[in-house]
């Protein structure tokens, strides 16, 4: 339809989406993150991307890989997983007596593609031995400050954020009350949202009412999550109990997720079984409940905090870009 205007020069199909400038900036950020952990005495490690064990989470879908022994029978072989995070392997190192460790690695999550998602992405993951929740939040805040230069992070309880921006108590409200809060706040409610799906309501409120406010003037860490969203975090038996989980947000974007780590193998086994039942109910494949991580936890995981931070998002925010594709050489479509 455009007449007279100069035709745009098409980018050749093989060329990267990100500019040389963006990828230079990314390389600088890799150095900065490494320096941050080296200065604090963390040991850099590398663990397998491909493992027989995998994190069991209702909404994380690992990519299965068949590792064949005979290339002529490529479909027969051992089922393994591209890791959704290096969590299991790193905790096995800790249980074997390693000190505080970190790594910068690729991770894979099936079905995730958008402005802030690519199924293959880069994580910075670290475990600080001997730390509790407050120290874990502090270290994360220090990393945000030194990489983003937007000041230290403010800390706010998940519950306080909900009371402030959604007007409802996320730890004590029933499903009907959460649903009413969603309607009052003008949340777009999916047709398939079931009334009894409590975490579903919390997520809808979080996305529409809370996240847009988070980390606008300075980074913010939300902490003390509902126990139903503990994942691998320890549950603190307060009244009401809370999961010692924390998340960093900048400009409304979730940047990191951390736990004061669960150390009880039996508790993890129970959570795994619950999650597998939920996965089956949603028509998803179940994941192996028994793992070398459980054996490691049975032999003893030291008290620690662990955090996973989305490195691509960190680069995107620091580079003032608005789409991951601006800082990834080859996003999924052209990978």
């Amino acid at each position: 339809m455009s007449n007279g205007s100069a035709p745009e020069t098409p980018r050749p199909e093989f060329a990267p989406r990100a500019s040389l400038e963006a990828l230079r900036f990314r390389a600088g950020m890799l150095r900065r993150v490494r320096r941050f952990f080296e200065e604090r005495g963390f040991l850099e490690v590398e663990t397998p991307l491909l493992s027989a064990d995998v994190v069991i989470d209702l909404h994380l879908d690992p990519l299965p890989v068949t590792v064949f022994a005979d290339p002529r029978q490529a479909s027969a072989g051992r089922p393994m997983w591209l890791q959704t995070s290096p969590e299991f392997a790193m905790k096995r190192l800790l249980a074997a007596g390693f000190p505080s460790i970190y790594q910068i690695t690729h991770a894979f999550r099936g079905g995730e593609r958008g402005r802030l998602h690519n199924p293959e992405f880069t994580l910075v993951e670290w475990y600080a031995v001997g730390q509790g929740l407050a120290e874990g939040i502090q270290l994360l805040s220090d990393l945000a400050e030194s990489t983003l230069q937007r000041g230290c992070a403010e800390a706010m309880a998940y519950r306080d954020a909900f009371l402030k921006w959604a007007g409802v108590d996320p730890l004590q409200a029933g499903c009907a009350e959460l649903a009413a809060a969603a309607r009052q706040n003008g949340v777009a409610i999916p047709d398939g949202q079931e009334l009894q799906d409590r975490d579903g309501w919390l997520d809808l409120l979080l996305v529409d009412c809370i996240e847009p406010h988070l980390g606008r003037s300075q980074p913010i860490v939300l902490y003390d999550y509902p126990p139903s969203q503990a994942a691998l975090a320890r549950i603190r038996p307060d009244c009401p109990p809370v999961a010692e989980r924390f998340e960093l947000y900048v400009d409304g974007i979730e940047l990191a997720n951390g736990y004061h780590e669960l150390r009880d193998a039996e508790e993890l086994r129970r959570r795994n079984e619950t999650v597998n039942r939920q996965r089956a109910a949603e028509g998803k494949r179940t994941l192996p409940v028994e793992s070398r991580l459980l054996a490691a936890m049975e032999s003893g995981l030291p008290p620690c905090t662990g955090v996973a931070l989305g490195f691509d998002r960190l680069v995107m925010l620091a580079f003032e870009a608005s789409d991951l594709a601006q800082v990834l050489p080859f996003p999924l479509e052209i990978a």
Partner: peptide
């Protein structure tokens, strides 16, 4: 169309 995925939550397509 925006793909969003809160924390450990379900994928939402806004």
């Amino acid at each position: 169309m925006n793909f969003v995925k809160p924390g450990k939550g379900n994928a939402l397509y806004k």
